[in-house]
Design a protein around this nucleic acid. Structure first.
Length: 299
DNA sequence: CGCATTTGACCAGCGC
DNA sequence: GCGCTGGTCAAATGCG
């Protein structure tokens, strides 16, 4: 389907952007979680590991997609995922935003019985919260990857400089405020960018507990686990890759310093863990899944 | 019928 | 202040 080579070249700029902080999944595990056997358990190393990083928008409001770019010359600069990924489209000028889009002002007051519907308004403060955000870059043909939780789509917007729309999902569980955005990379349409925001305050729906990934990342009441490097990371991120082959990348911003690059692909998913306990469980699960059919492995 | 999705409108932030 | 853009709301619609 998608070759490793193709994948790597498609994200040349990205890998460069994150170069100083680039770590393979196994490297990350070794360093951060003192795990050395994951790649052996999965046969991941070296080809299946990819860049992982993540985002925590605690330094800049509203720019949720800020990622650390330490730069080739070693200087730290900020870049956005959008700019990193779609810069060429801007340059070429050949790409149009989804044509369906029309200006709000053009249709205001038209076809809508009540323009005063929005009484609630948006909760301003909420949007600017320092909620952790994590971006998965997943090589997949489907946009909405099953991750063990139930999501309700509440919006879709055309993305500037991208022909692909961005979808907005919210966890359907009551009182769970986790959201995620899903969009397809313009530069590499085979890649899906999934941005998770917030933390699940509940367990994975029982109907979905059967899969390993879901079980592994069922969250605890503690919203974060603090790691050895002092960063916070949600424990419950998971992607269940079920019948599709995926590459996953995740980006995170760790106080402008270091990106963690991990990815693993299990028969059922790509996973990330920042919790030693979970990691131990992960290792057990991984060891139990050593006899994974080839077609479920990484590309 | 209940739940999920679609989709146009609304709102806020930001840059100019 | 204005326009652009991202994010969200909520009515309409679809689907099992």
């Amino acid at each position: 389907m998608f070759s490793e080579k193709h994948f790597s070249s498609s994200y040349n700029d990205l890998s460069q952007a994150f170069d100083p902080s680039y770590m393979s999944f196994t490297e990350y595990l070794q360093e951060d979680m003192e795990c050395t056997s994951l790649e052996r358990s999965f046969g991941l190393y070296p080809s299946s590991t990819e860049v992982f990083s993540s985002i925590q928008d605690n330094q800049k409001p509203s720019e949720s997609e800020d990622i650390v770019d330490s730069g080739i010359d070693g200087s730290e600069t900020l870049a956005t995922l959008n700019s990193s990924i779609t810069s060429s489209s801007t340059e070429s000028g050949t790409v149009e935003v989804s044509g369906k889009r029309k200006k709000d002002g053009d249709v205001k007051g038209e076809g809508r019985e009540s323009s005063k519907k929005r009484i609630k308004g948006k909760k301003k403060g909420e949007k600017k919260q320092n909620e952790p955000k994590f971006v998965f870059m997943t090589k997949s043909e489907i946009d909405h990857l099953e991750d063990g939780y139930r999501w309700r789509k509440y919006g879709q917007k055309a993305v500037k400089n991208s022909p692909y729309p961005r979808s907005y999902y919210r966890c359907t569980t009551q009182k769970c405020i986790v959201k995620k955005r899903v969009e397809r990379s313009f530069q590499d349409p085979t890649t899906v960018l999934t941005t998770y925001e917030g933390q699940h305050n509940h367990h994975v729906p029982s109907s979905l507990k059967g899969n390993v990934a879901a079980r592994m990342f069922t969250t605890t009441p503690t919203p974060f686990s603090t790691t050895t490097n002092g960063s916070n990371f949600p424990q419950n991120l998971n992607l269940r890759m079920h019948n599709h082959n995926h590459h996953s990348l995740m980006f995170r911003n760790n106080n402008m310093q270091q990106s963690i690059n991990t990815t693993a692909s299990v028969s059922e998913g790509s996973i990330y863990s920042h919790n030693n306990n979970i990691n131990n469980y992960l290792l057990q699960q991984l060891n139990n899944h050593q006899n994974i059919p080839q077609e479920y492995g990484l590309l």
